[in-house]
């Protein structure tokens, strides 16, 4: 007689594994929703981006993630700023020149910035918050880092093409390390938001 596949696993691990699987499915649906709602230019659609962020936040809250402020928050923010510096410097040192964006784009950037910050924060809450926590419990840090990094890369392929995959996976590894070091989502969220904003304001 066949034994259940989960034989020998503690219920906590089983729960965490199922939770991670449902979360991953939900994140994939959220990405598809963004593409479907974004028309011919999903990567530039603000309504699609806001819808996407809302879906990620709903999934994360459903999974039990809650916003909390602990006594180490200053350290987490500092680690996030340092992480952003690494993300931006890796890009800036490879680019031959980093011109400042002209004034004609200022109005556009003022609208763009909060939407980008919202999307980046929601991605971190979903991936490095809810999903990372479930995977940490299901299989430990290596599994959590690997799955969230690959998911981070894959979720951007429909928007930016396969060229985005290696860079986003590497960024996911760095952000996962920040999550592991700080124990919370604040550090990777700060790093991700600042790096994305730098892409618009400096690039």
């Amino acid at each position: 007689m066949n034994q259940p596949a989960t034989r020998g696993l503690a219920p906590r691990h089983v729960h965490a594994t199922v939770q991670a699987a449902v979360l991953t499915t939900g994140v994939a649906a959220a990405v598809s929703l963004r593409i479907a709602a974004g028309g011919s230019m999903p990567a530039a659609s603000y309504p699609a981006a806001i819808l996407f962020a809302g879906a990620l936040m709903a999934l994360s809250f459903g999974a039990g993630w809650r916003f909390t402020v602990d006594r180490h928050w200053r350290g987490s923010v500092g680690a996030g700023i340092a992480g952003a510096a690494v993300l931006v410097l890796a890009w800036a040192t490879a680019a031959p020149h980093v011109p400042l964006t002209g004034g004609q784009h200022l109005g556009m950037l003022l609208v763009w910035s909060p939407v980008v910050a919202l999307v980046a924060a929601a991605e971190e809450v979903a991936l490095r918050g809810a999903l990372f926590g479930a995977l940490l419990e299901a299989g430990g840090a290596p599994l959590a880092i690997a799955v969230t990094s690959v998911a981070f890369g894959l979720m951007h392929v429909p928007l930016y093409g396969w060229g985005a995959l290696p860079l986003d996976v590497a960024a996911g590894v760095l952000l996962g390390g920040l999550r592991l070091l700080s124990g919370g989502v604040a550090a990777p969220a700060v790093a991700h938001v600042l790096a994305d904003l730098a892409g618009g304001w400096l690039g």
Partner: peptide, 26 residues
């Protein structure tokens, strides 16, 4: 992650993708 990023940014075409994600500016 940091070493991977530094190396990869040197290999990808200069205009490909936005920094790590973020919306494209319309």
């Amino acid at each position: 992650g940091a070493v991977g990023l530094v190396l990869l940014w040197r290999l990808v075409p200069p205009t490909s993708p936005p920094l790590y994600d973020g919306l494209c500016t319309p």
